[in-house]
């Protein structure tokens, strides 16, 4: 058996892996968007810029402080999360009672500013970031060659996504979050500091984006535009999965990455548009998204 549906297996599995990698990033980013949208009622357009900031923090830590990949994986989400929390306190807070549109405009403006600043500072050519020594090389699986770093990205993304799901759906802290998503005034009247919870939730969602940015640094280059290229697709993923659904955003993120990979194999001409075609179809058939609750 040298081909599958007329495709050499190396090409098929290679594209599947690429799809899984892309899906890992779609899932982490759309998950953060879903968590933020659920509680803050804000469509966080700055998400791509904050993902890019995560990658730049990793690069900066290495260049200027000599702190490597593993430190970056810990410190970049914290740093970007803090930036996000300041932003939430100073600006987003004033928009919660208004239409989604205002939050979208503000965060979109912020994304442009952040990207502009980084482009000014670093140009638009990418900065390389080396794969950490522990994850260099690869494993021959017989039917394909699996680079270790790529396997790590898929596993790390799955673990982080499922841990987030568990925390939200199965713990007491998550119960506060779910309840506050439904009725923040009542949850606060039970004695919970809801404004602080909102700040921390935004910080968490944004930290997730920064974590994805660090994972991405060795694969794509560290580039001021890396976020804006990705975020458009991620928004399509969010629309397909259903805004605000936790498991929905994880499943949809991985699934669409794979669909995109398979399209590259079987009909490469459509590989850049297949997600948007699916989005349009879903919007027509089930406007609340595949996992969304219509209300």
């Amino acid at each position: 058996m040298s081909t599958i549906f007329g495709i050499p297996p190396q090409a098929l599995f290679g594209q599947l892996l690429l799809g899984l990698i892309n899906g890992s990033f779609y899932a982490m980013l759309s998950l953060g968007l879903a968590v933020i949208f659920g509680l803050l009622n804000i469509i966080n357009f700055a998400h791509g810029a904050l993902y890019m900031m995560g990658a730049f923090v990793a690069w900066f830590l290495l260049q200027h402080l000599g702190l490597g990949y593993w430190w970056a994986l810990l410190l970049a989400p914290i740093a970007v999360g803090l930036v996000g929390m300041v932003f939430e306190r100073a600006m987003l807070r004033h928009l919660y009672k208004l239409d989604h549109l205002y939050g979208l405009l503000l965060t979109f403006g912020l994304a442009l500013i952040i990207e502009g600043l980084f482009r000014n500072g670093f140009g638009s050519s990418g900065q390389p970031y080396r794969i950490p020594a522990e994850l260099q090389g690869g494993t021959n699986l017989g039917f394909m060659f699996l680079p270790n770093y790529r396997a790590w990205v898929v596993v790390a993304s799955l673990v982080v996504c499922l841990a987030t799901w568990f925390m939200i759906e199965r713990t007491r802290l998550g119960a506060y979050l779910r309840a506050a998503t439904e009725n923040p005034a009542l949850v606060q009247a039970f004695g919970i500091n809801v404004p602080r919870m909102i700040t921390l939730t935004y910080g968490f969602g944004v930290a997730l984006a920064a974590f994805a940015g660090v994972l991405a640094a060795p694969i794509y280059q560290v580039n001021p535009l890396m976020g804006s290229n990705l975020i458009i697709v991620v928004f399509a993923v969010v629309v397909i999965g259903g805004m605000g659904s936790i498991m929905g955003s994880i499943v949809t993120g991985f699934a669409l990455g794979i669909v995109e990979g398979l399209t590259k194999v079987f009909y490469p001409e459509a590989s850049n548009t297949v997600i948007f075609v699916i989005m349009a179809t879903v919007l027509l058939i089930k406007p609340a998204g595949l996992f969304g609750r219509s209300n």
Partner: peptide, 14 residues
């Protein structure tokens, strides 16, 4: 709360 089961609702207020 619709997204909480009965015992989660019961145990929500600290």
């Amino acid at each position: 709360f619709a997204s909480l089961d009965v015992s989660e609702n019961l145990e929500l207020p600290p």
